[in-house]
Amino acid sequence: MVLNKIEKLVEKYENGETSIAEEQELKRFFTESDVPEHLEVYKSLFTYFSVNQQETFNKALPLKKTPVIPYKWLTAVAATVVLLLGFYLGNRTKNQDLGTFNDPELAFMEVSKSLEMISTKFNQGASTVGYLDEVNKGTSTLNYLNEMENATQIIFKKEKK
């Protein structure tokens, strides 16, 4: 009786026509009771299904707290930082106050002192440039070569004649 029913169910099962409840019944039959030899194949099939149903996912889930700061807030913050930095740098250049003199005589003395310093340094530089004279001397001695050329020209002229 039971076997008859099971055989019918198996046929329906293969045609994909069984309901979930009927499939549960098949599963129960094949995993629990003694199965006749000609249906042995289904025993391993349904056992496989129920064994596989028990496999679980055990890997940890690294759920990070996603940052809730919206994008437009981020841009606002960036703009503020840029502005603040701009003000800070601007103020710093303005603060480059070197001071001033109230007494004109003192100012004159300071100016002449610094000018004098500039002139001495300048002269030092100029004196080293003096070595350029040596080069001039060298080129002037090269002029003697002209003399030689004159001589050769005279020789050639004579040959032409």
Partner: peptide
Amino acid sequence: ELNDSLHWVE
């Protein structure tokens, strides 16, 4: 035997 047949199903 059972493990073997389950292996076959897989």
